[in-house]
């Protein structure tokens, strides 16, 4: 299978196998008119299997959120066909409507217009907790 190299855009690598479509929808790539390649179940020495997304256009979304959706993901910035930057993602202190609270007793389950907000907590291991019920993400 041959996929053309992208010229100006980003390559999202080391996506957990099976998660590419979730990231595709989160970045609303279906609404863009640039070339996008989704590779699923690609062999990886480190991960066994992984997904990759190549986007042939610059993206102005805050990509740090991707580290929440898919820990371990890497972002490569491509310019003129060459990788010019490997972005290190840092977990944002707060995320809104990125993850949903799974606690059935949380107020967000009955009041569906409430934003799902999670805050980063934990001194040793970073953990996102729902601001309403404090349940772990």
């Amino acid at each position: 299978m041959h996929i053309d190299e992208i010229q100006n855009g980003i390559v999202l690598d080391h996506i957990t196998a099976g998660k590419a479509m979730e990231i595709y929808h989160f970045l609303e790539l279906d609404g863009r008119d640039c070339p996008v390649a989704i590779l699923q179940n690609v062999g990886s020495r480190k991960m066994g299997r992984k997904d990759i997304i190549k986007i042939d256009a610059p993206i102005d979304t805050d990509l740090n959120v991707l580290a929440v959706l898919c820990p371990g993901i890497t972002v490569n910035v491509i310019r003129d066909g060459v990788r010019v930057e490997k972005k290190a993602l840092t977990l944002p202190p707060e995320v809104k409507d990125v993850i949903k609270c799974k606690n059935p007793r949380c107020i967000t389950t009955t009041e569906q217009e409430l934003p799902h907000i999670f805050r980063l907590t934990g001194a040793k291991t970073p953990v996102y907790r729902c601001i309403y019920c404090e349940t772990k993400a």
């Binding site: 606690n103 007793r105 107020i107 729902c130 601001i131 309403y132 019920c133 404090e134």
Partner: peptide, 27 residues
């Protein structure tokens, strides 16, 4: 007092007077 966890926090974001949590579920 509310059976859903986090309801008093939601209330405090909307109310114009102080809210006291008198118990929100098991939280």
């Amino acid at each position: 007092r509310h059976p859903k966890e986090g309801a008093p926090l939601v209330a405090s974001m909307a109310a114009s007077v102080p809210i006291i949590n008198a118990g929100d579920g098991g939280h």
